[in-house]
Write a protein that binds this DNA or RNA. Structure first.
Lengths: 230, 230
DNA sequence: ACCGAAAAGAGAGCACCGCTCTTGCTTTGG
DNA sequence: CCAAAGCAAGAGCGGTGCTCTCTTTTCGGT
């Protein structure tokens, strides 16, 4: 247990958390590119060099924030799925999509951190992969439940895509039809296209009632993976 | 005419172009966040302060690059549309989508500049709006042609979305059915979700045959706006 | 209980950044 | 022809990420 270890380790965890908290504050205020280690240190009353005992570089701090953000978003998606556990698959799909959108609207800068442009030069380490997959897993799970329950509607699968579809299905969801796996990956990317456009201002002066628009689009995404009307 | 003015004005245009060119080089090498005016100046053999005669700030340089990128992408989309002028609407749609993807794969950093996270603090001035709309205009045009020619397939439009759909159609394409306008905006956002996910690495170790996958997804997007099989 | 090792903070300093201001030089246009 | 405008250069300000050294604190094994 982490609580059983010495005062030193506990203090380290607390300081680490405080640094991330302050960094998140800066992130929300100024954006990732202006996240300054010195400013974080100032806010915490330490000297900048002391921060390097906790994060070897600014990029490592960013990586930690990225992982936290993926986890936070993943949790939000999972909570939405569980809260709609009794609803029809299509409704559960829409609920998860709306949870993703809501999370993004609440924390635009954290969303930008994980789904915006990759930070300069920096390439995400492997540790970010599992947290990043959580939302996708939730979406896959909903389709899997529908497949084992009410069933999925038929989806097209051109011959040229068959090898890729088989690979995809084998990797992601061996129990699903290959065409559903393809549709899932596409819908997954398209979901973040919708959220990103709204968040980054592409819908300004275009879409007004974004809530309604998004719910409709998410519903059509659900149809696209074989949910609903089945 | 721009060629008729004095040597001074011509020199100014050449230097401005050289600055943007060098900046684009840095962009490709290091990413937008590390674009350094001093480095650009060094590369051009000038002193950093001299750059401020051409761009009042780093953000203004970025704005210029953003506008150029939007225009370049818009031209690519228009060229693809014109090259496929004789094809069926669905094929023309897919051709334009593939042009967008191809442009993005060729210039990932410029794509990130316009469709990635907004740059820190900086909010895009109104001058970027018309260039940014060009791709959307191309997509609208294809659907309009199909509507006036072979016709569009029926699309659902829930009652709650009717007001927003009417507004959208009035703004974007008064001659199109309201439900087509809604579907167009959604497909537009979803297209960039697909491209962005591929470009920013979200498809790593997930999608292998991205070319084929994308063509299929673009085709389904076309169906989603009422093209094809009509 | 002590003592050496490990961890943590503080401070100075390096190289770089965006941006401003002042100083001269060159081109331009009335 | 000469004043005005455009331009390059240099110095300098406050900020950044990061490194190095030095001191203090804490921990674990004997």
């Amino acid at each position: 247990m982490s609580t059983a270890q010495g005062a030193r380790a506990r203090a380290r965890q607390e300081v680490t958390a405080a640094i991330k908290e302050a960094a998140r504050g800066q992130l929300a205020a100024e954006g990732a590119a202006k996240l300054s280690l010195r400013a974080v240190a100032r806010e915490l009353g330490m000297v900048s060099s002391a921060l390097y005992r906790y994060f070897p570089s600014r990029d490592d701090l960013l990586t930690a924030l990225i992982i936290d953000a993926y986890d936070s978003l993943g949790e939000a998606a999972e909570r939405a799925r569980d809260a709609a556990a009794d609803a029809a698959p299509e409704a559960r799909w829409v609920a998860v999509c709306e949870a993703v959108r809501g999370w993004a609207l609440d924390r635009p800068h954290e969303y930008a951190l994980i789904y915006g442009s990759p930070v300069p030069g920096y390439s995400a380490p492997q540790t970010t992969v599992p947290p990043a997959a959580r939302v996708g897993m939730v979406l896959i799970g909903i389709v899997r439940d529908a497949h084992q329950g009410p069933g999925l509607t038929a989806l097209p699968l051109p011959a040229g895509l068959r090898p890729e579809a088989a690979r995809l299905a084998a990797d992601l969801a061996p129990d699903l039809p290959a065409e559903a796996a393809v549709a899932l990956v596409a819908a997954w990317a398209q979901l973040f296209g919708l959220v990103g456009f709204e968040l980054f201002g592409q819908f300004n002066r275009v879409v007004e009632d974004r809530e309604t628009f998004f719910r409709h689009a998410a519903g059509r995404l659900a149809e696209g993976v074989g949910l609903g009307r089945g």
